[in-house]
Amino acid sequence: MKEIRSTLVWPLVALVVLLVFNAVASPGFFHVEWKDGRLFGTVVDIFNQGARVPMLLALGMTLVIATGGVDLSVGSIMAVSGAVAAMQVNAGASMGQAVAAGLGLATLLGLVNGVLIARVGLQPIIATLVMMVAGRGLAMLLTGSQMVPFANRSLTWLANGSVGGLPVPVVLVLLLAGVTGWLLRRTAAGLFIEATGDNEKASRLAGIQTGGVRLAVYGFSGFCAGLSGVLEAANISAADPARIGDTRELDAIFAVVAGGTALTGGRFSLAGSVVGALLLQTLTLTLYNQNVAPAVAPVPKAVVILAVCLLHSPRLRARFGKRTQSVAA
């Protein structure tokens, strides 16, 4: 428990620093008002946009990375599920049916990743790279490369509605994160995932079905990406097969790594990934508020991410600690 808390410290520190900067640089940053039965404000936007994509993707990505893998296909899977949901409501399906179709296909694609990795034996980076390319192609094929607009109020409500004053995506994603975290620790799934990522050979010899573990985490990552894709489409009442989820897999990986889960696998922290996703979203919005041109924005973003990752490195911290000690002496 102590260990997990200490990994949470650095992304939290970075988040607080950013928030303080914003409080000073852009007055009204923390201004929140109640209008039409829901909350509005910059902070609420950060939570809302952060939940819709980076947080949701990071949930699945955390477990994949904990097994020592990576999932590059989440952005493309978002495009597929968004397109499927949009086409379903246009074909007369209900919101529930459309969402189920999108999530079902997304989970299936995730499981295909899992089969390629756990059964066929491909490297995760290769298998999901294939799915990244193929998934985007599938989304284009399904939609004829055209934007799919739709008019379905319940589907749009998923992204723009509110529950108890909070945006629906925030409630949905925090609930999903909570239930996932609870289930992982309530069952032995969390232990099996960490054991598989830390030492797969030893885990197998201890009787863990490591292939099944890997299959499941890629399936779950597909599911999360599917939900994210549906929310993205619902947000603008249209599925854009070319742009939904484009390069968002990188955001997810950043969020997970910034949250303290090592790319080498093993111990993971869902809470860390949630904070990491918020950090990323705050940074994006801060740069936007400071009128940094979107094309240039990745540079300061990269610097902050690098800083957080370096703070996680025990070797660097040890060296830094040594130097301050010798200065003191």
Partner: peptide
């Protein structure tokens, strides 16, 4: 290489095989 799960705790390493034989749901 084939024994310890290095970053997991002593407790987790000890229960690992027993947990594996019980399955994921019966923690």
């Amino acid at each position: 290489v084939e024994g310890i799960i290095p970053s997991l705790s002593v407790r987790e390493n000890i229960v690992l095989a027993m947990q594996a034989s019980r399955g994921v749901l019966r923690r």
